[in-house]
Design a protein around this nucleic acid. Structure first.
Lengths: 218, 218
DNA sequence: GGGCTGCGTTATCGTTTCGTGACCATATGA
DNA sequence: TCATATGGTCACGAAACGATAACGCAGCCC
């Protein structure tokens, strides 16, 4: 298991690294936001939100946008609730406040790894009926013709295409695309409309009344 | 998104339920360990570890063994680190200590939901006599012919089909479909009527006088 | 600055679905 | 067999739902 530790205080980071390594993790250390974003891929990030060269929250956002399945645990000295909520909303999976015990941190790391690692590695290409989605390049083809989608449209399509034929609930799509169920359904409906228009195939994106939408298979 | 709230203190649970419902979640409440294990399937469990009739930790273990993908957030008054570690190690995905703010709880719920339901679509298939119910696509076939059901009709059918041949009480169905037993019983009867009409098979949905309904098995 | 594009919100409209009350049917039990 | 309670059916108004168009705002690139 590979962990990236992002922490600018070298005394703290040194202590944490030895603790983590003693427990069998491979640990890479980054002291700045830039270093964090440049680090090698890993399974989990321990991210201090107080960084010298940039806000940790931005790092969090960047990391999350890069990979959905990366586990992120925010670590910070500020214990105020507002910070915690912001941290979680930004894409962190968990939040630990200093000072914390190594036992608890370890438990949280394992609880999170249990979730993240088990996930099937994303295949780069999703094919559903007449659509072909390249997750890497974010390119979409319909019946062989390339279609340009905006970010939201693409994310919505992927959210649907991950479970072809299944009814995907509003909440699920909102979580996948906006990371929260809070923002309006209306917005989603509007994007669905433009997605349908761009795909051009009638009945491909079907509505499931009272539930959400479904991508018609074959 | 369906949440099961396991909490024995009724003042606390009432407050939490309204808060959760206000944020758009479907909530079922269980006050005991037994009730928790008997409740309908859900996406996430808020589990008080201090229960009267059995240790919450056991409930946690049982729920986890039943489903790997179920999200479990342990909620408890004991704030000692040892408890937290035990909770997480038992299978909980997250741990919140009372008193907590609703904003933080909500943030943690969303952070966890973002992970849980996404990957393994419950592509479960229920087959009872001439009916085939696909929970993922919410499609229903009767004798091979596709039937279109409304949300309520479908939910009622699933509630019955989960225990084929067994008499399912009014209360159980109302909880499954409306998340409350608060009257509405007449409404259920009406929906049963239209469900029967759509299924078209006589005697498939049987009345159990004074109790509820039963789905006739092959 | 001025156009463009992506995005979120609001307003509006047609449709489906739901819940309710009135009335009918059937079972139950004396 | 009849009275009563329990469940079934019908019909209608209210509410929810979803599609679409239009607007405003922000960021971006000349």
């Amino acid at each position: 298991m590979r962990i990236l530790l992002v922490e600018d205080d070298h005394r703290v980071s040194a202590a944490m690294m030895t603790m983590l390594q003693r427990r069998g993790y491979e640990v890479e250390h980054a002291a700045t936001a830039a270093a964090a974003l440049a680090a090698a891929p890993c399974d989990l990030v321990l991210l201090d939100l107080n960084l010298p060269d940039g806000d940790g929250v931005d790092v969090c956002r960047s990391l999350r946008s890069r990979s959905e399945q990366l586990g992120i645990i925010a670590v910070t000295a500020r214990g105020e609730e507002r910070d915690r909520v912001v941290g979680l909303r930004t894409g962190a999976d968990d939040y630990v406040v200093k000072p914390f015990s190594m036992a608890e941190l370890h438990a949280r790391i394992e609880a999170l790894l249990r979730r993240t690692v088990r996930q099937a590695p994303q295949c780069e290409l999703i094919e559903v009926a007449p659509i072909r989605i390249n997750l890497g390049t974010r390119a979409v083809e319909v019946n062989g013709a390339c279609v340009t989608l905006t970010r939201k449209e693409f994310d919505i399509l992927v959210s649907l295409a991950r479970q072809p034929g299944a009814a995907v609930s509003y909440e699920r799509i909102l979580l996948d695309v906006w990371q929260t169920t809070w923002s309006g359904r209306h917005t989603l409906e509007v994007h669905i409309a433009s997605l349908r228009a761009k795909l051009g195939v009638p009945n491909l994106v079907q509505t499931v009344r009272g539930v959400g939408y479904r991508l018609q298979t074959g």
